[in-house]
Write a protein that binds this DNA or RNA. Structure first.
Lengths: 202, 202
DNA sequence: TGTACATCAGTGAACGCGCGTTCACTGATGTAC
DNA sequence: TGTACATCAGTGAACGCGCGTTCACTGATGTAC
């Protein structure tokens, strides 16, 4: 019960990665077919049922993956740059560039996926916003703000970063100029938001 | 050639509205079928071909509709509240609530639609951002900013409003409390952005 | 260690279904005289 | 105005195709003795 279990896990992973691969070619989760995913994973269609009841269940598993990646990216960004939200954003974006797949899904399926998956993703994002709002205490200008205000700022920053993350992942592979422009824009917008946060009380 | 033409236009409209109706039930454009749309429009599947070469062409027509709605909403917001961006946002959101369909599509298909449609929508949004950036000249604190900075602020505000517009349209029909909370949040975030814009130079 | 049996991940044939698309049609509307 | 012909939006039958799902199977891996 070890070689067998491990092989099973590998096939399951192949199915998830097959779905991810198809999605990063621009296909929406809702348009993926069971046979299509099985084909991509190099497995016969019926094998799918050994791992997931149906496509919705696979969607749920993908949402979990996405949540995990988000937490990792956040953790990374936190380690890299403790005190400057500016560097945090850059570190976060660097992580995203190194692991683009889950973020494409996050940005796209967040609004487009079937309800259940969308809600799972939204839950992940909310959790992430809460965590980030706490982090913002360390930012001197926001130390004395109310929790509500910090949540507002965190929500704003994360949404804007995720939105532009989705945009960045749309860019053709070679276009690093456009990519830098986009990152500059995001960094400036985050600075602007933080500037606003220090001069604004609800 | 008048009654006939008009009837044809009506059928075309029925197809577009059928697609819109299906989409506001949560279906993504990419998952809509030709037969499904024809059924919704009360017309035989083959009649579709009298109006559109294929589903992509219908997608393009929908993108045009969306762009038009966006311009109208903007015009409305501008008329209602000339000088306060605050009231502008409220007027914009009021228009959205009165004409939700195109905005659901805008918020969702912007990231999820097939490439061609997505690009058409993105073009509309960019046009809209430019127009709004010009409007921001009238806002005293931004009168002396550079064009680039105003564009940055416009981009930020429009993206955040559109994102939450999509969120608002997800809410169940009766929940006006949540709706007001959401609107409050957006208004506050816009205020915060404007506060930031007045205290920040790139 | 060797043998006999159990498990179960992956296979491959078969099914019914809705899809997009083609085609020849029909009958109301439009045009020419 | 009336008649004879042309147009063409919408119809309905037919097609081939890929889909999700079922089922009995096989053969490698695991378990018990």
């Amino acid at each position: 019960m070890r070689r067998r279990d491990e092989r099973k896990r590998e096939t399951r992973q192949a199915l998830l990665e097959g779905a991810l691969a198809l999605m990063s070619e621009g296909k929406a989760l809702a348009t993926l077919g069971l046979r299509e995913i099985a084909r991509e994973a190099g497995v016969v269609p019926t094998a799918f049922y050994r791992h997931f009841r149906d496509l919705d269940e696979l969607g749920g598993a993908l949402a979990d993956n996405v949540g995990l990646a988000l937490r990792k990216a956040f953790h990374e960004a936190r380690l890299t740059a403790r005190n400057s939200p500016n560097d945090s954003v850059r570190a976060f974006l660097a992580y995203v560039r190194a692991n683009p797949h889950p973020f494409e899904i996050l940005a796209r399926e967040r609004v487009a996926a079937p309800r259940a998956v969308r809600e799972a993703i939204e839950r992940e994002i909310r959790f992430f916003v809460t965590e980030f709002a706490n982090e913002l205490r360390a930012f001197p200008a926001l130390a004395s703000s109310s929790d509500v205000d910090r949540a507002l700022v965190a929500d704003l920053i994360i949404n804007i970063v995720l939105l532009h993350t989705g945009e960045a992942l749309e860019l053709p592979k070679g276009s690093s100029t456009q990519e830098h422009e986009l990152i500059d824009k995001v960094v400036k917008q985050v600075q602007l938001i933080l500037a606003g946060a220090t001069h604004w009380k609800s």
